[in-house]
Design a protein around this nucleic acid. Structure first.
Lengths: 116, 116
DNA sequence: CGATATACATTGCTTACCGAGGTATATTGG
DNA sequence: CCAATATACCTCGGTAAGCAATGTATATCG
């Protein structure tokens, strides 16, 4: 006899999705600190670092919010071949933000490492 | 002359709030793995580990979701003095979930540590 | 007997992720 | 030459979580 069991895979996926709210901005700023990038390339890079792929419907609105909040600026780059690209560069405010995010993340991490 | 600057404090607070969606469940399960606890005590414990205080409007719905998803169970405990308490205990499924959360968190942490 | 502390609960607002769909530009194979 | 594919950007609507505000009830203390 089989007892009904909670769908732990579904629950975990849902949790991962919730965790992304916050993690993604931190991750994008971390990548942009190292080098200027454009959206489509960020998708590839992020999909490698996260377990699940990074949908376009997530990254483009996210980048627009970063621009709105002046954490990054962008510049159109006309390519010799293919569509033009919007290259994003982190600002001074963006770096300050990143510094504070890093501190907060590490504090949280310390809690988790000490509790487990 | 003063140039208008983005309100980095406000932005950071907003980010922290977003990050909590996901972090809190992980944190609560982590605490419940060590010992059974009731809601009001969790609030004190969590407020110590997080920078900002933990509002009641967050923890009680969260605990109800955990019960709904069978990651924890609860039991009313009548006290000699003061109102009764709902003591929460982590389930086997909850422990499985926690194990997967821990793995995912550590993967993310590895990314952040290597990139910074 | 009013004020305070303990303990749990709910409603409405806000915000972010993402699936689904759309536009446009170049390249490549038949 | 033209259909298919890859690149590169964008938007809309549904869903879900945190939280401020507000409410209930019990016990204690001055």
């Amino acid at each position: 006899m089989r007892v009904a069991q909670a769908d732990i895979n579904g629950l975990f996926d849902k949790w991962q999705l919730q965790l992304r709210k916050g993690v993604l901005v931190y991750l994008v700023l971390t990548l942009l600190e190292k080098e200027d990038m454009y959206g489509y390339a960020l998708i590839s890079s992020l999909s490698g670092k996260l377990v699940a792929p990074m949908p376009e419907g997530t990254i483009y609105p996210l980048l627009n919010r970063l621009v709105r909040d002046e954490l990054v600026v962008f510049e159109w780059q006309i390519m010799d071949s293919g569509p033009a690209r919007k290259y994003y560069r982190i600002t001074r405010t963006g770096r300050q933000m990143l510094k504070r995010m890093r501190k907060h993340w590490n504090q949280l991490n310390d809690v988790f490492q000490s509790e487990q």
